[in-house]
Write a protein that binds this DNA or RNA. Structure first.
Length: 333
DNA sequence: AAGTCACTCAACCGCAGGACG
DNA sequence: GCGTCCTGCGGTTGAGTGACT
């Protein structure tokens, strides 16, 4: 079963676009504008899938696109955004006028990731590789022992080159993934809609951090000790099956492993630096975003406070929006 | 000069969500 | 409420190209 293909794949051309095909799309769009992409190939006289036409337009032909290389400022912004929201390329691209999600994704995969790795920073967690390794060792003492021990063994066999370390860092990440060990991004995206654990190199510190990166100097993250577990998303109160645990919106407030809670509270209420504002906005918008991201009320089982919990979120949302009206404008989710 | 390798980036694929009848 | 269609998105692929041997 499943969906039928969007077009007859056997009869449509694939692969690189010719100048003539580009011209046809441009001419059609100039006259009719973009509309139903599934009809455009036929109307424009193209033997292409509508989806392919849309992609060609959005990624290459759109007149507002930049085709020059990324500036250091753009690169810095991508790194910052990625440290906060992960690989949500379309959201990151919206911060960069004239860039598409494909551009950003490609640039990250081919340049920025390697740049970070060369600096000794894990491009997934945005933490120093050494810290990732030490955290992974800590985790390995737990129930994920097999994979992590294997990793440590492998790591010990190739300790010499930087590249090997970095490669191993990726393997560490993969192993953690396979063992359902979540990290900041994942725990945020997958586990709790209101849970946002800053990486140990939090966005609050990241501005300095990334500036160094782009200057090509090695920076060391002012991180907490290695006891900060990758997978401990602040030990938030999670509703559990079959319990009558009550929880409040504030239970899901992020806590930064670096900052004492009191100062975080202060931070939440201040406008601080632009980077901080960015981080907060993203955080808050992410929270808003989560309203559409599988807030699984049912998952709370018999938790009777589900609706009041949602109400509380909405109330708090309103409260925050009144305090930070720019929230809705920074990231347009 | 020829072969190989690494890198880049345009394009494709499949899935998810929203709109609409 | 359901099915279909369209669009958006993130991950992946593979052709093209330059560097290296």
């Amino acid at each position: 079963m499943g969906r039928p293909p969007c077009c007859d794949k056997s009869n449509v051309k694939k692969g690189l676009w010719t100048a003539e095909e580009d011209a046809k799309i441009l001419a059609y769009v100039a006259i009719h504008g973009v509309g139903n992409w599934s009809l455009i190939p036929k109307k424009a006289g193209l033997n292409r899938c509508g989806k392919s036409c849309r992609l060609r337009w959005t990624n290459y032909l759109r007149p507002d696109l930049k085709h020059d290389s990324f500036s250091p400022q753009e690169e810095e912004l991508i790194i910052q955004c990625h440290s906060i929201i992960g690989s949500r390329w379309s959201s990151i691209a919206r911060k960069l006028p004239g860039r598409t999600d494909n551009d950003v994704k490609n640039h990250w995969n081919t340049k920025l990731k390697k740049k970070l790795m060369k600096m000794g920073i894990d491009p997934v967690t945005h933490k120093p590789v050494s810290q990732v390794l030490s955290e992974f060792r800590n985790i390995s003492s737990g129930h994920h022992g097999n994979a992590s021990e294997a990793f440590v063994r492998n790591f010990k066999t190739e300790p010499s080159s930087n590249n090997s370390i970095l490669t191993q860092s990726n393997s560490a990440w993969e192993m953690m993934r396979h063992n359902n060990i979540t990290t900041s991004h994942e725990s945020y995206y997958n586990n709790s809609p209101m849970m946002f654990t800053n990486p140990t190199c939090t966005p609050f510190h990241f501005s300095n951090h990334s500036n160094h990166l782009l200057n090509g100097t090695t920076s060391s993250c002012s991180s907490s000790s290695s006891s900060a577990s990758i997978t401990q998303p602040n030990q938030v109160a999670q509703p559990t099956h079959g319990t009558t645990t009550t929880f409040q919106w504030s239970d899901y407030l992020l806590s930064d492993p670096v900052l004492p809670l009191s100062s975080q509270t202060q931070v939440m209420g201040s406008s601080a630096t632009s980077n901080l504002t960015f981080a907060q906005n993203e955080n808050f918008n992410s929270q808003a975003d989560c309203s559409s991201e599988k807030i699984d009320i049912k998952a709370s089982g018999t938790c009777h406070s589900a609706s009041s919990f949602v109400d509380e979120i909405l109330d708090k949302d309103q409260e925050m929006l009144s305090q930070f009206p720019q929230l809705l404008t920074d990231f347009d989710y």
